[in-house]
């Protein structure tokens, strides 16, 4: 990597320049012929340590590794790993760093990736650490926006749904604050509003407005980033049922949106985006999921020769 980053742990470690370097490399990966790409991780072993299962993230990472010619070792479920026997994370990581050239990991404990990066002699890529960080998701979100609009600066981005607990929207908000003249519209029920601290920390560079009304800002949005509203966040089931049905988007929203408007979603969705939107131009979420592969290829390729 051109930057000093030796691991991908948290989007907060990335400057705008770092982010742009990743997006550029991801675009290069998409254009590169398969045969050329397959040499990039030739002879390298990448450990894929999923202490917490996540089929989507794992498949995306492992596809990235294999298309670059790397070999994958690891596990997809902590039950088969040694951690259940009470081994510390740093012991597991030290052992794995002895076999592998790069480590991809996902863990339910917050800060696990930072701990691994501090322990490991090999670069660590965080595929999610509990409610804390999921930097490759944020980078693929940014890549998707960049690819669709040719820029990130100056766009107006709506975030809808569970903004209180949603890790992806928190990281995306911080990442967008590194760009210029971005406007963000936060659309959430009172009980799931973006934490005040995050609004305070980003509002000096982002124009932020908040609302509970889905329709209020629709005409000005370039992107609407939708997140799942999870039932388990609610004490009151009645409140959940009420809110869930207010924040459902279908094709009808396109009557009030501007040309070029796109909908993103980290997937999987439950019912918050109706399937009638899938076949419209506005649906960017499947493309977004696909973009995970070139972004992860880019990161693997940028980190493969890092000396820590």
């Amino acid at each position: 990597m051109e930057s000093k980053l030796t691991d991908v742990v948290s989007i907060s470690d990335f400057s705008r320049k770092d982010i742009e370097a990743v997006l550029k490399e991801a675009a290069r990966m998409e254009k590169m012929p398969l045969s050329e790409k397959a040499k990039l991780l030739e002879g390298k072993v990448v450990a894929s340590l999923f202490f917490e299962p996540s089929t989507r993230t794992r498949l995306s990472f492992e596809t990235a590794i294999q298309t670059l010619g790397g070999r994958v070792i690891g596990f997809s479920n902590a039950k088969v790993s040694s951690t259940k026997k009470g081994e510390t994370l740093s012991d597991t990581i030290t052992m794995v760093a002895g076999y592998a050239d790069l480590i991809v990991m996902r863990h339910s404990i917050e800060g696990a990736a930072r701990r691994a990066a501090e322990t490991s002699s090999k670069p660590v890529l965080n595929g999610g650490d509990g409610a804390n960080q999921h930097p490759t998701q944020t980078l693929l979100d940014l890549y998707t926006i960049q690819k669709q609009f040719g820029k990130i600066d100056g766009l107006t981005i709506g975030m809808l749904g569970d903004l209180k607990y949603g890790r992806t929207v928190h990281s995306l908000l911080y990442a967008l604050s590194k760009f210029k003249d971005v406007k963000v519209r936060l659309i959430a029920p009172e009980s799931l509003k973006m934490p005040n601290q995050m609004v305070e920390e980003t509002k000096s560079t982002i124009g932020i407005k908040e609302t509970e009304n889905v329709n209020e800002f629709l005409p000005e949005l370039d992107v609407l980033y939708v997140t799942r509203i999870q039932k388990e966040r609610f004490v009151d089931e009645f409140e959940y049922e009420q809110i869930k049905n207010v924040y459902i988007l279908g094709k009808e929203i396109l009557k009030s949106t501007k040309k070029g408007f796109r909908v993103m979603h980290p997937l999987p969705r439950i019912n918050e985006i109706k399937t009638d939107l899938d076949s419209t131009d506005a649906a960017l979420y499947f493309e977004q999921a696909k973009n995970g592969v070139p972004v992860r290829q880019a990161l693997l390729n940028m980190l493969k020769d890092v000396k820590k």
Partner: peptide, 12 residues
Amino acid sequence: MNPKCISTVENL
């Protein structure tokens, strides 16, 4: 003070 933090769980 985060009970789900690695520093808490592993007493680092």
